[in-house]
């Protein structure tokens, strides 16, 4: 935490110092606690651009703010399931990152993606998955299953934290009961509902403070993002990571340029900049998620290269999938179920 604070302070000092002589500006709108200050510092030094990073906490917040206008941002980092909405609403600039110099470094796996085929609008920032984190000093059984939070073992009951994310939780529950994402099968959804209502009585919280409370022992198990669980393990070696074999969601957040950006040229420079393996490695070093740039591994911290949270074992690869956007009717149904279980 102290090194983070020092880094932030350094970045802040640099922002102030460079404000006086910077050639241009770049305003980045990104998820909180997600942008490495060292990366920003390096970009500022390389291009003499003053960068300002503003945080958001959810895709819908970011979308609502940008849609309202007058935001002044150049770059936004939406998740895969939100990119098509941003494109459809005409909010993104077709920056053609696929024609940029460093695009050759992007892993083929992340080029032909459903949400931006051929990458005409976005470049990868980080990707990860929602999985299971368990304190092995409390529970020693199989942790590669969603049963950890949907049918909790006795040792963990009342000590579980679940990410307060409708999509991630609904996805795991639907898969656990043998359904497909975006299903509107009421019989199955009723089972999902009953399962979640019963499971929730065994949950302690639905909160975002995992990197602090999983290592401290306040939570003994979580259903949460892999990078945060890795950060927890670095603080407490008893934490282990599990891949829910019934099915788990992948996510990828991608960097896009806004159509009404004031500094589109600087934003393009930034896009190209983060596709350089050395710079992509900086992104991962900070937030502990994978980045999708080939060759970035050799520049990363040693701990990331071998991390069980980041290197999906072959046997679990097929269980993961990206959460597709469903029709508004199905989404409304899922929201209703979600509101109902969080009442």
């Amino acid at each position: 935490m102290n090194s983070l604070k020092t880094a932030l302070a350094a970045a802040g000092a640099l922002l102030v110092a460079s404000a006086a002589h910077a050639e241009g500006e770049l305003n980045i709108f990104n998820w909180g606690d997600y942008t490495n200050p060292e990366l920003i510092k390096k970009f500022e030094a390389a291009y003499d651009v003053k960068v300002t990073v503003t945080d958001y906490d959810s895709n819908s917040t970011a979308l609502a703010k940008v849609r309202a206008g007058g935001h002044g941002f150049d770059i936004v980092v939406p998740s895969a399931n939100y990119v098509p909405i941003w494109i459809k609403e005409g909010l993104l600039l077709e920056a053609r990152p696929d024609q940029m110099e460093n695009f050759k470094n992007v892993d083929e796996r992340w080029v032909g993606v459903a949400w931006d085929p051929g990458r005409h609008y976005t470049v990868p920032w980080q990707w990860g998955l929602t999985g299971i984190g368990v304190n092995t000093s409390v529970y020693k059984g199989d942790i590669n299953t969603s049963a950890i939070f949907l049918d909790p073992p006795e040792e963990l009951a009342g000590k579980i934290n679940v990410a307060p994310e409708r999509n991630d939780v609904m996805y795991a529950a639907i898969k656990y009961l043998g359904g497909e994402w975006c299903t509107d099968d009421k019989v199955l959804l009723k089972k999902v509902y009953d399962k979640l209502v019963a499971a929730k009585t065994k949950w302690l919280a639905m909160d975002y403070s995992v990197t602090e409370k999983l290592p401290s022992g306040d939570y003994s198990a979580v259903y949460y993002w892999n990078g945060a669980i890795m950060r927890s393990r670095l603080k407490n070696p008893d934490i282990a990571f599990g891949y829910p074999k019934e099915g788990f969601p992948f996510f990828m957040d991608s960097v896009a340029i806004l159509k009404d950006a004031k500094n589109p040229e600087n934003a393009k420079l930034f896009m190209n900049f983060i596709m350089d393996p050395e710079n992509a490695a900086l992104i991962s070093d900070f937030a502990k998620y994978s980045n999708g740039i080939k060759g970035s591994g050799e520049f990363m911290d040693e701990a990331l290269k071998t991390a069980p949270e980041l290197n999906v074992p072959a046997e679990f690869e097929a269980a993961g999938a990206f959460i597709e956007p469903c029709s508004p009717e199905v989404m409304e149904l899922y929201t209703r179920i979600w509101t109902d279980i969080s009442k």
């Binding site: 934290n161 307060p164 929730k200 949950w203 302690l204 919280a205 639905m206 909160d207 509101t339 969080s342 009442k343």
Partner: peptide, 10 residues
Amino acid sequence: GGKNMMLGNL
């Protein structure tokens, strides 16, 4: 803990 909502959270 965000588990049980109040009106503001709803």
